[in-house]
Design a protein around this nucleic acid. Structure first.
Lengths: 207, 207
DNA sequence: CAGTGTGAAGATGTTCACAGCG
DNA sequence: CGCTGTGAACATCTTCACACTG
């Protein structure tokens, strides 16, 4: 293992490696070569080896990578050894979808608090999570030591919500609102921008 | 305007330029300099000028870019001059959220057909769209000449749905399922992978 | 003379090719 | 002998710096 700066793109691919590994572990495979790996993920095998070598010498020459051990390593690199609770703000279409989303309900992430301004919603429960007044956000997030916030409010409210989340001590934000958030640089941001994806997509289409 | 290959990253940024422009047009600005632009988007001003220059000489030296004209140019480059109808498959949490999503309901994109396998859902309407049997997908998508598909089914069903959409003549797919789809190379893909985003996000967090 | 458009330099990421280990 | 790990070559993207124009 060398001390080097790790490309963002490598981090980008780690979740894909992990997902691929979990699949082939299910199929009972004990080892996998970088070649096999790269075929499944449509990339170059040298890419796979280089990516993994940033974090240690996980492979065995002549054999490949031990699937179980590698999966465990990647989970550890990605900080997936603890359950991440999230505070969600904005219980609209996407917000409620995330509250009941099976994709991570049973996994490493869980929406454990939800906030809204709509008095019709406050007090109701979705998937065992009670919707609370956004006024209480700061207090409640601090109290529960939540480190991840999810923004699913309309674009116009997103920056204000982001500020409140930061005040409340959140360290990372998953933002679904189509705005560029202004955040302190120690706060990490993941942006999910569906309209942007669609606009890019149709650029490439025949018209 | 030079004939050059346009970086993917440039296409990535076009929707952001557009969004930013629309905002400042609302504020009544007639012109904007690459410098102002770059501040609002957190990038280098040379980046802005280079990106825009791939498509033509839109700026005026000493003045900047005419906001209205540039917005219109970008919309045209991105193929946003027509309304894009989409066929959505999988009316679960995320699927139904998209059916009622205000973010593009009033815009350039609209989910105009929805399919599912669940007989409880088939026949019901969400936001004026009747949910149909996925068996009818190919026929109905062809008949309506739909060019965009949205996959919001569980991971295990995603590849099969993708195949059907391709059979039906779709040219672009927006996929929310956490799988790497195998598609003919003339079919364009946009992937929205929420779990991946979260996994990357927490990599960067203190633990 | 302010601000674009763009070659050239620099930074970052990917692929090649092969030495060396199990 | 097969497959990893990795310098070096290559490709792509970003930033600099400045000539030139409206």
């Amino acid at each position: 293992m060398k001390e080097r700066t790790i490309p963002k793109e490598t981090i980008d691919r780690l979740p894909l490696y992990l997902r691929c590994l979990e699949k082939i572990i299910d199929q009972g495979e004990i080892n996998i070569s970088s070649e096999k790996f790269s075929e499944k993920l449509n990339l170059n095998s040298a890419q796979v080896r280089k990516d993994l070598s940033y974090f240690g010498d996980f492979g065995t020459r002549g054999v490949g990578y031990a699937t179980e051990a590698l999966a465990s390593q990647i989970r550890s690199i990605l900080n997936l050894n603890k359950k991440w609770n999230m505070a969600l703000v904005g219980v609209g279409n996407i917000g409620s979808a995330l509250l009941t989303y099976g994709g991570f309900t049973q996994g490493d992430f869980e929406v454990s608090m939800a906030f809204d301004t709509n008095t019709e919603l406050i007090g109701k429960k979705i998937n065992d999570v009670e919707i609370e007044d956004v006024e209480k956000l700061e207090e409640r997030v601090k109290e529960n030591n939540i480190k991840l916030g999810v923004i699913t409010v309309p674009a116009s409210a997103a920056q204000e919500v982001a500020n409140t989340l930061v005040e409340a001590g959140v360290e990372g934000i998953l933002n679904f609102a189509p705005v560029l958030l202004n955040l302190p640089k120690d706060i990490k941001l993941a942006q999910v921008d569906i309209t942007k994806e669609l606009e890019q997509l149709v650029y490439y289409l025949e018209t």
